[in-house]
Amino acid sequence: MFDLKTKVLVVDDMLTMRKTVIKMMKEWGYTDIHEAKDGEEAWTKTQEGGFGLIISDWNMPNLSGLEFLKKVRSDATFAKLPFVLVTAEAEPQFVAEAIRVGVDQYVVKPFTKESLRMKLESAYKKCSMRMSA
């Protein structure tokens, strides 16, 4: 699993959803958690550096989670940054598009604390394999 000191960015235009994810992360022991209200703000924060995990909503105004993911993956500095999308858009074509762009895991809303933990664990394994490749 990701080290509990990992700098995490939680992105969602809905404050209640950011609170929900952050609460779960804190209960697991993560301490360095930052938040952004859309993809635009998230991209600005990402460029400041230091993040080891991004958990982003898809459907947001200004810059969607998918567009944000594209920016992250197309920048050599952040191309391998672990990226998890959290969204209500679970139709096959959306999932396929997210995978094509390079998402590490995909969490479908609504979700439990346990289902988020399992997705993060899976994302960690995938990223570890990518890093060692």
Binding site: M14, T16, M17, A88, K109
Partner: peptide
């Protein structure tokens, strides 16, 4: 915005 998020999830 909790109402918006619930709406979003139900719709999704």
């Amino acid at each position: 915005d909790g109402a918006g998020e619930l709406t979003n999830m139900i719709f999704g």
